[in-house]
Simulated scan of single mutants.
Amino acid sequence: MNELEISILTPKDWERYKCVRLESLNDSPDSFGSTFGEEAALSDSEWQSRLDLKSRGLDALPLIAEINGQAVGLAWGVIHAPDREVVHIYQMWVSPASRGKGIAQALLSEIKAWALGSGCNLLALAVTTSNAAAVRLYRSSGFITTGQPTPLRSDSLLMLQPMVMTLHSGE
Rank of each mutant, 00 (worst) to 15 (best):
27 D>H: 03
37 G>M: 08
40 A>D: 12
41 A>Q: 12
42 L>Q: 10
42 L>E: 06
42 L>P: 04
44 D>Q: 14
44 D>K: 15
45 S>A: 10
46 E>D: 13
52 D>G: 02
52 D>I: 01
52 D>C: 07
54 K>C: 11
55 S>Q: 12
55 S>F: 02
56 R>I: 03
56 R>C: 06
57 G>R: 13
57 G>Y: 10
59 D>W: 07
59 D>E: 11
60 A>D: 14
63 L>E: 00
67 I>H: 13
68 N>V: 15
69 G>D: 05
70 Q>E: 13
77 G>P: 07
78 V>C: 10
79 I>K: 01
79 I>A: 00
82 P>S: 08
83 D>K: 15
83 D>F: 10
84 R>P: 04
84 R>V: 15
86 V>C: 09
89 I>R: 12
90 Y>L: 09
93 W>M: 01
94 V>S: 01
96 P>S: 10
96 P>M: 02
97 A>Y: 04
97 A>T: 08
98 S>I: 02
99 R>W: 00
101 K>W: 00
102 G>F: 05
106 A>H: 09
107 L>S: 03
111 I>L: 04
111 I>G: 06
114 W>L: 03
116 L>M: 07
117 G>W: 01
117 G>D: 03
118 S>A: 13
120 C>P: 02
122 L>T: 14
122 L>N: 07
123 L>C: 03
125 L>F: 10
125 L>N: 08
127 V>E: 05
131 N>L: 10
132 A>P: 03
133 A>S: 14
135 V>M: 13
136 R>L: 05
136 R>W: 01
139 R>Q: 14
140 S>I: 06
140 S>F: 01
141 S>N: 10
141 S>I: 01
143 F>H: 04
144 I>T: 12
144 I>Y: 02
145 T>A: 11
147 G>M: 08
148 Q>Y: 05
149 P>R: 12
150 T>W: 01
151 P>R: 02
153 R>W: 06
157 L>W: 02
